[in-house]
Amino acid sequence: MALENPLFEFLLRQGDNALVLGHRTSEWCGVAPILEEDIALANMALDLIGQTQMWLGYAGEVEGTGRSADDLAYLRDVYDFRNLLMLEVPNGDFGRTQMRQFLFDAFQVPWLTRLQDSRDTRIAEIAAKCVKEALYHLERSSQTVIALGDGTEDSNARMAEALTFLWPYSGEMFVDDATDQAMADAGVALLPSELRGPWLETVKAVAAEACLTLPDSDYAQKGGRTGFRHTEHLGHMLAVMQTLQRSYPGATW
């Protein structure tokens, strides 16, 4: 099957990951367990929305039909989204939110690091900006996972539960498809599967410090980044996120 516009598809995946995780993270604003974490989560959400603007802005230019980053964020429905399933499932408790952030950050850091060498200079520039934030996110999320995993009996049990819940979703990050192959052939990006090894090393090291055991399964829920099948949760999330544009189409500041 010939790909219509693999670069556009690739950029949607970058942007939608940041957008969906950013929105999920923003749901903690005002309700996090303590003030300091509330502020940190809001900062992280804003970092991710900022990254979204760069990725989707470029996606709109590549598509060439005049759609802006806002159009792509607010005027698409579930089936047009290209984010990982792991990022759209509900936050769960604070521990699961941190675990998800960590599993994603452990991929984002090496991924964005390598994208800085992309033959596409715009992508290299965006990656260089995003990787600095991703490094801080990884430091924060990994230390929180360790603190909670190696914490009380209750916090350890919650982190173990979070890991069990998220693990089947984490494999989707490393499933290559035709779009990934096209990007690799063009020197735009590496194949995500190349990062499975380094990612696993990071995750193993943190899990060991956090007194957690990695689930013994390679089964991967997928369909998010290809747009084939999202979970039931993304539609509900978009209904909240896009409510203004749905209620008042074309509304601007």
Partner: peptide, 11 residues
């Protein structure tokens, strides 16, 4: 202390 530095960075 490390946690305090990270929180201070964000706050």
């Amino acid at each position: 202390a490390e946690h305090a530095i990270r929180n201070a960075r964000d706050v």
